[in-house]
């Protein structure tokens, strides 16, 4: 179990792995995630289930190497085993009845938005997609997204591919073109989700985002992932991670994500190399 079967480097710090995880693959739905531990002394951290194959019993994870834990995972090769892997966690995203949905993925957020787009497409919903990245080297899943979308728009910060600008620029164009949009699903960095939410709020378009709050257990046990939505406090891991966007306190979420910035720098991510877990 938990053996890495395939590995692809999508961009220098962006990796995709396919993992043998039959129990998780059997149950996974769009919007759900797993929690992993890659090292004996390692932390527990969440990644979205970007894809799954129920027959083969595998799940696909796509991750950006941003710190120790994701680097340790990135160091694993085909044949290596993930020490601990638990899921599927969180609720499946509840899609509203809609004829046309705009799916927006920013940065590594394309990974979690893909299963949403795919599920909508399979249910006969018209999907319009916007994917954004800093530059063209960081773009991935363009073909996969194309397959499930009626139209696909690309934006890059530097204009090296698609339209120069942000995903919100492309979204605003669509809105101003008079397109009828029943729902927007936006997943990416917190500031991007906030910007999309602000825009769609202005036009009264129902919007779903998926929060990447700090998590420990992922089962509702620690409360570390709490998020203020309107007057209520929810736990992102069991009540979400997907929520209706317009009343989320995004500033609180961004602030909470910075909680351990100093401590995170101190962890040495080389420690795992000598002691990988090989399936016996």
């Amino acid at each position: 179990m938990n053996k890495i079967l395939e590995k692809k480097v999508l961009a220098p710090t962006l990796k995709q792995i396919v993992v043998n995880a039959p129990l998780i693959a059997r149950k996974a739905k769009a919007g759900q995630f797993v929690i992993l531990r890659v090292h004996e002394r390692g932390e527990r951290f969440p990644l979205t289930i970007a894809d799954y194959d129920r027959e083969k019993g595998t799940i696909t994870l796509i991750f950006q190497e941003v710190g120790a834990s994701t680097k340790l995972l990135g160091n694993l090769e085909v044949g290596d085993v993930i020490l601990d892997l638990v899921g599927p966690l969180g609720k499946a995203t509840k899609h509203p009845h809609a004829k046309r949905v705009v799916c927006i993925g920013g940065g590594v957020g394309v990974a979690p938005v893909y299963p949403e787009a795919k599920e909508l497409y399979e249910n006969g919903v018209e999907v319009i997609s916007i994917i954004g990245a800093r530059n063209k080297d960081l773009l991935f899943y363009v073909d996969e997204m194309k397959k499930v979308s009626k139209e696909l728009y690309i934006t890059t910060d530097d204009g090296s591919a698609g339209r120069k600008g942000f995903v919100t620029d492309a979204l605003k164009d669509l809105i101003l073109s008079g397109m009828e949009i029943d729902c927007v699903i936006a997943i990416g960095p917190m500031p991007m989700m906030k910007a999309v939410s602000n825009l769609t709020k202005e036009y009264g378009i129902y919007t779903i985002v998926s929060l990447n709050s700090l998590m420990v257990d992922g089962t509702g046990m620690c409360g570390g992932c709490r998020v203020t939505i309107g007057n209520e406090v929810k736990f992102a891991c069991i009540d979400g991670p997907a929520f209706e966007a317009h009343s989320i306190d995004f500033d609180e979420q961004m602030r909470r994500l910075r909680m351990y910035q100093e401590e995170e720098k101190l962890v040495d991510c080389k420690c795992g190399e000598a002691e990988k877990n090989v399936e016996n």
Binding site: R41, M221, C222, G223, M259
Partner: peptide, 27 residues
């Protein structure tokens, strides 16, 4: 920031050994 449930605080320290950070990775 800086407010914990006792569950989170104790889980980080006991199960995840945060008292040995950064040798153990949980902060």
């Amino acid at each position: 920031n800086g407010v914990y449930s006792a569950n989170e605080f104790l889980t980080r320290v006991n199960l995840m050994r945060a008292y040995l950070h950064p040798d153990w990775h949980t902060p």
